[in-house]
Simulated assay, not measured.
Amino acid sequence: MGITERRQTEIENIKKKIIDAANEILISEGYENLSIRKIAEKIEYSPGIIYHYFKDKAEIIKCIVDIGYKNILKKIGTVPVDKENTDKTLILVLRAYIDFFLDNPGQFRAILMNDINEVQDKVNILEKGIAKKRKSMEKLCELISLCIEKGKFREMDVELTAQIIWTSTHGLISRLIIEKDIPEEQKSRLIDHHFEILINGLVKY
């Protein structure tokens, strides 16, 4: 490895250390209590070093959201598309999404249950045309379109349907995270019934 490559690796390692520390503070103390000073104290760097790599805490938050978004896409991307049972594929994708956040409740609370201005352009999903901006919404729309083509679902506005499915699923996740003492059996019943209601509202009779 040459000098340039070593330097680049060093830069990436420092940036990761900063992002990881910020993520820990974000989850444990909330966005309002996140600061460059606290990040610096946690990793025993000077604030000046952090400012050398990031303009401000907003830029750090955006990096955290980007990483989380990539992990979500990776998670749902592992679900194979069964073109003969597209409705089942849709459920599996949404289950993977639910599982991801139930495994990472702190990040869901910190970012998606708070109104953080700096990341709204990365997490908002209700505007018209959002499927062209969000890979996750694009994938959901593709699955709904496949369900319609295969005669599983009736004709409908695909993007609006994706937005409602997404928001209702977010609502379920938020309650499962807030009410953290719910037994696993009850969680499973709630998730199963969530999908039963969603799919019954979309099927073509």
Rank of each mutant, 00 (worst) to 15 (best):
W166L: 06
G151M: 10
D181H: 13
D157C: 03
E179R: 04
L176S: 04
S168F: 06
I178M: 11
R175L: 14
E179I: 00
E149P: 10
T167W: 01
L172A: 00
L176P: 02
E155A: 07
I148Q: 04
S174Y: 03
L160T: 05
H170Y: 14
K152G: 09
K152Q: 08
A162K: 08
C147L: 08
I182A: 13
I148K: 09
S188V: 15
I177V: 14
G151W: 01
L160M: 09
I182D: 09
P183D: 02
E184I: 05
K180C: 13
L176V: 09
L160D: 14
I165V: 14
Q163G: 07
S174L: 12
G151R: 00
I165N: 00
H170F: 12
I148Y: 01
K187P: 02
E179S: 04
E159H: 10
I178Y: 14
S174R: 15
D181G: 11
T161H: 00
G151N: 09
I165K: 06
I164A: 10
F153D: 06
Q186F: 10
Q163V: 07
I164E: 03
S188C: 15
G151Y: 10
K180Q: 15
S174E: 15
I182W: 10
A162M: 03
I178E: 15
E184D: 01
G171Q: 13
S174N: 14
D181C: 10
A162L: 04
K152L: 06
L176K: 10
L176H: 04
K180F: 14
S174G: 15
L172M: 07
I177M: 09
R175E: 12
S174I: 12
G151A: 11
D157N: 11
E155C: 05
G151V: 02
M156D: 05
P183R: 01
L160K: 13
K152F: 02
K150P: 03
W166Q: 06
K187M: 05
E155M: 01
I173C: 05
C147G: 10
Q186K: 15
I164D: 02
